[in-house]
Design a protein around this nucleic acid. Structure first.
Length: 575
RNA sequence: GCAUCUGUAGUCUAGUCUGGUUAGGACUUGGGCCUUCCAAGCCUACGACCCGGGUUCAAAUCCCGGCAGAUGCACCA
């Protein structure tokens, strides 16, 4: 099976292997070896080229350990869990809510564990397998818990996604972007989920790398300035409706996806397009990817539209490698409620609006004496209350009651006057919506390896057809024969290439054919070979990994030629 | 988390049933010889019984426990 070959080479040649091997390993953890680490960096840097350089987003870095409050606000402490129950006899473990829902055919989401436990007892629900009694319900939270500080009083968690690290400092970010929407912030880093049983190699890790962009937009304006540039590009979409009717994915242009209301906004379509560009450039071709819309039932509670970019794999079928969601204002709203910090943005109108408005005018000569020291607080609170409701209350009931931090006050007609005022409104405060492309870097690396792996049966070659600019080793340098005079020149070329910034590998072991094969196997795009003629004419051959074709170039030009090739400024055939 | 199967160098494997020499081979890798362009040949070296306990004079081999992997079930913001 191709998959096994890829994973074997990855392990053997230093891309990927499971962690802690000498202690028998722990499921869900992988090391990146010497080549894997370079490949990962190249891909991440390519990602930065797209999102930071091209799109103009900025990158931040926040801690991987987060305090409980923050994750309480984001919903992860309460919702990133599954209620579990276990059969006391056969020890089978089940999702408690699923078991109950099957029997009573009703939604039980949101109930406490005690309530679920009670329901199991009341409905006399037993183990579906053996019918025995089920244990009480407990929560399995997918987050790794830890304790912060020497006394360990403060609970912390390893972050389950990098996104929260962007929402939390939103006020500072907003200031950095000088208060204007839209803007984007990205974070690349580790995230952690204590999966119950990770089993699909690098596809489901307990510690993994995410690259996420949070794009903050005006909820009323989800257009993209450059949409017209991409509207004719086709995308392979698999909308929810078609999935439910068991249809096939459709090919539509970005423009159509929007006009036919398949995707909910320009911004979202643009992000889908950007993802496909990115994948193509790192070696995952269009024909193995599709965009699958989340079904209403699988959509996270905070999202209104969500598309998974899926890549076809030989072993695991269609695998989600990127999620692109409209998270709306869920996170900012929630953090505002929990932190008491106003995470809204003031959006100025194009034209200030003149509006007539009823205003509450406190009569200070009565107000002050009545409320004394609390008067300022009450005045402040009044500002946020709709004047019309105050007036009605006073007219109908002769007073208006308001509560401020547990104290109750009564406004009497003598305390206030009402007045029609002309007010100039320059804008309003709103919660931005968030469009989020979220990349699973590890899965992408796996996909790159899988889809660039090439078996050339005719020539008995197996190699990674990695794009030239992400191959970990960029050039191999060989003496044709292991002769001192050739070795000397080859070594010199190798050192010079390294000085010029190339990752070059020198190799004299075995025959030239074996060395080409070794070099191909890890996807080195070019090989430079020194032969006897080089001694005469100061030229070497340069070999193209994909075609094994060779050209002869002057030793003094090697760096320049490689540079041009790597940047795709020239074609190998044109050398 | 449960069940079944599996676990010998980097890889593939012999040996395990029936306990008994220095755990054998092939490929790979390192060094050398040879070699004027795609895994050739020759010499040579390195390298393994998943971990822990038990039975036994003696355990890769039998027993128990653990760990890991594969598969199925369950789970998968």
């Amino acid at each position: 099976m191709k998959h096994d070959k890829v994973m074997n080479i990855a392990k053997k040649r230093g891309f990927l292997w499971s962690s802690f091997e000498i202690y028998a390993g722990v499921a869900g953890f992988y090391d990146y070896g010497p080549l894997g680490a370079i490949l990962k960096n190249s891909i991440i840097n390519k990602w930065r080229e797209y999102y930071v350089v091209r799109e103009g987003f900025y990158e931040i870095e926040s801690p991987t350990v987060m305090p409980e409050e923050a994750l309480k606000a984001s919903g992860h402490v309460d919702n990133f869990t599954d209620p579990m129950t276990e059969c006391k006899e056969c020890l089978e473990v089940y999702r408690a809510d699923h078991i109950i829902e099957e029997v009573i055919d009703k939604e039980v989401e949101g109930l406490t564990n005690e309530e679920l436990t009670a329901m199991i007892a009341d409905e006399e629900i037993g183990c579906p397998k053996c019918g025995s009694q089920l244990s009480r319900v407990w929560n399995y939270n997918l987050m790794f818990q830890t304790l912060i500080g020497a006394k360990g009083k403060k609970t912390g968690y390893m972050r389950p996604e990098t996104a929260q690290g962007i929402f939390i400092p939103f006020k500072r970010l907003l200031r950095f972007f000088r208060g204007k929407l839209p803007f984007g912030v990205v974070q690349i880093g580790k995230a952690y989920r204590n999966e119950i049983s990770p089993r699909q190699g690098v596809i489901r890790l307990r510690e993994f790398t995410q690259a996420e962009a949070e794009i903050f937009v005006d909820p009323r304006d989800k257009t993209h300035r450059k949409f017209h540039e991409i509207k004719d590009n086709t995308l392979k979409l698999y909308p929810a409706e078609i999935q439910m009717n068991e249809g096939e994915p459709i090919e539509v242009s970005a423009g159509e996806a929007l006009s036919k209301k398949i995707v909910s906004s320009q911004m979202l379509v643009y992000q889908l397009y950007l993802a496909s560009e990115f994948l193509d450039e790192i070696g995952i071709p269009d024909d193995v990817i599709r965009f699958r819309q989340h079904l209403p039932t699988e959509m996270a509670h905070y999202a209104i539209d969500c598309w998974d970019v899926e890549v076809k794999t030989e072993k695991y079928g269609w695998v989600e490698i990127i999620g692109i969601a409209d998270r709306t204002d869920y996170d900012l709203k929630s953090h505002t409620e929990h932190s008491n910090e106003d995470l809204r943005v003031f959006l100025e109108y194009d034209e200030p609006k003149q509006i007539k408005k009823l205003a509450v005018k406190p009569n200070m000569s009565k107000f002050g004496p009545s409320f004394k020291g609390d008067a300022p607080k009450i005045l402040k609170a009044l500002e946020d209350i709709d004047a019309e409701s105050v007036r009605q209350s006073i007219e109908n009931e002769g007073l208006f009651k308001l509560e401020i931090s547990g104290n109750s006050y009564e406004l009497l007609p003598e305390h206030v006057n009402f007045e029609e005022v002309d007010e100039t409104v320059r804008g309003e405060k709103i919660f931005p919506h968030v469009i989020e492309p979220s990349y699973g870097i590890d899965r992408i690396i796996f996909s790159v390896l899988s889809h660039t792996f090439t078996e050339d049966k005719e020539n008995e070659r197996e190699y990674f057809r990695l794009p030239w600019d992400i191959a970990p080793v960029e050039v191999s340098v060989f003496p044709l024969l292991n002769k001192e005079e050739l070795v000397k020149i080859a070594l010199q070329i190798n050192d010079d290439l390294r000085l010029d910034g190339f990752i070059a590998e020198f190799d004299t072991s075995g025959t030239i054919g074996r060395r080409y094969a070794r070099s191909d196997e890890i996807g080195v795009p070019f090989a430079v070979t020194v032969d006897h003629e080089s001694l005469e004419d100061n030229m070497v051959t340069i070999r193209n990994r994909d075609t094994t074709e060779q050209k002869r170039i002057p030793i003094s030009d090697i760096s320049e030629v490689l540079d041009s090739l790597m940047n795709y400024w020239i074609e190998f055939e044109d050398l």
